[in-house]
Design a binder for these strands. Structure first.
Lengths: 191, 191
DNA sequence: CATCGTGATGGGACTTGGTCTCATCACGGT
DNA sequence: ACCGTGATGAGACCAAGTCCCATCACGATG
């Protein structure tokens, strides 16, 4: 029973999200998540490296999409334009289904240190991925790092705005990236 | 015996650093660290929230120093100048003793995922602290976030350079912050 | 139709991080 | 000599995460 039913991974994610919402992240044991999904602890850890990762599934693929998005940006595009292209390329990943669970997910993450820590690591991962991709385009290292960091900032703000209001993720992040760029240039003047 | 000898916390840090270097972070149990320090597991967890934290001691105070450094920057100073002042204010923290253990510490952190995760969280903590401090100075939120992020970038690069070459931490980060700012402004032109 | 290989699962032993509680000891002050 | 305080020791306890092996469903093959 339960065995061989499809979408084990997805079932685990839903069970985890529900339980975290009901009792909080810390009061939920992995065995409990697995049980609600009709599986066992062993199987849980076969699908996710650790308990935290169940909330960050697919985020590693996302880094790859960012990488190829930058690599395939038009030749003449500057670093920030390439970052913008990557943010647009990633918008296919953010479906309505994603958006439905977004707020619940965000609330759980915000309420727990371990999870905020994992989120921070993911963002660093994005920044590193974009930095490397930019360097492979011939961008100097420091410029690449700065552009990537601003890109992550735009990504985060865009994601929040997208959760709030919906719409096209690419279009939204294009706006937030422009805002970030303007904020950066206003800093120069203030010196 | 062992009991009531001074500097328990420091002894734990040294024991941990040594053992991590000898056997790696993952192959070292907390009980073993405590034993080498002449203490017990209980005492270890009284001094550090978890096993990772033994490598990040005092980093929370550092965030506070950054905060006050920004708050006490000259009135007319722009956001980036305030960040620069904070980086200088923090240089008292980086003594030669700190620098002696720096490379060993960095190597251990680089070789383990959990530790890189914790390091990422600390950097986010710095960014948040500086962002908040800048907002309290009347800087708009987005400008504050961008300035803080650039400040963290400069901090990281400055720290690496300081470990490598030594010298005055404040002076070094002042240079890296200038480089970061120039890189940012060169991005504008490339659009 | 029987067999076999493969891949996903179940199950349980085991280590270790981390929490909690209570007893114990050193020190300073009275 | 007594007492209060604060840091430590000791051990029970829970859950995360690892490991190993048995088990089962499915598709391919003969």
């Amino acid at each position: 029973m339960g065995r061989w039913e499809p979408d084990a991974r997805e079932r685990l994610v839903r069970a985890a999200l529900d339980l975290f919402g009901e009792q909080g992240y810390e009061n939920t044991a992995v065995a409990q998540i697995a049980e609600r999904a009709g599986l066992t602890k062993s199987t849980f850890f076969r699908h996710f490296r650790d308990k935290r990762e169940v909330l960050f599934g697919g985020q590693d693929e996302l880094a790859e999409v960012l990488t190829t998005g930058i690599a395939e940006a038009p030749e003449g595009a500057g670093p920030l334009a390439a970052v913008g292209a990557a943010l647009v390329a990633v918008s296919a990943w953010f479906t309505d289904a994603q958006r439905a669970y977004g707020p619940q997910r965000q609330a759980v993450i915000a309420g727990n240190d371990e999870l905020r820590e994992r989120a921070a690591l993911k963002m660093v991962g994005f920044a590193v991925a974009m930095t490397d991709a930019l360097k492979r385009r011939g961008v100097a290292e420091l410029e690449a790092a700065v552009a990537a960091e601003l890109g992550v900032l735009a990504f985060q703000r865009g994601y929040d705005a997208w959760l709030e209001a919906g719409g096209d993720f690419g279009e939204i992040t294009r706006r937030t990236l422009r805002d970030v760029r303007e904020a950066a240039s206003s800093l120069e003047g203030a010196e």
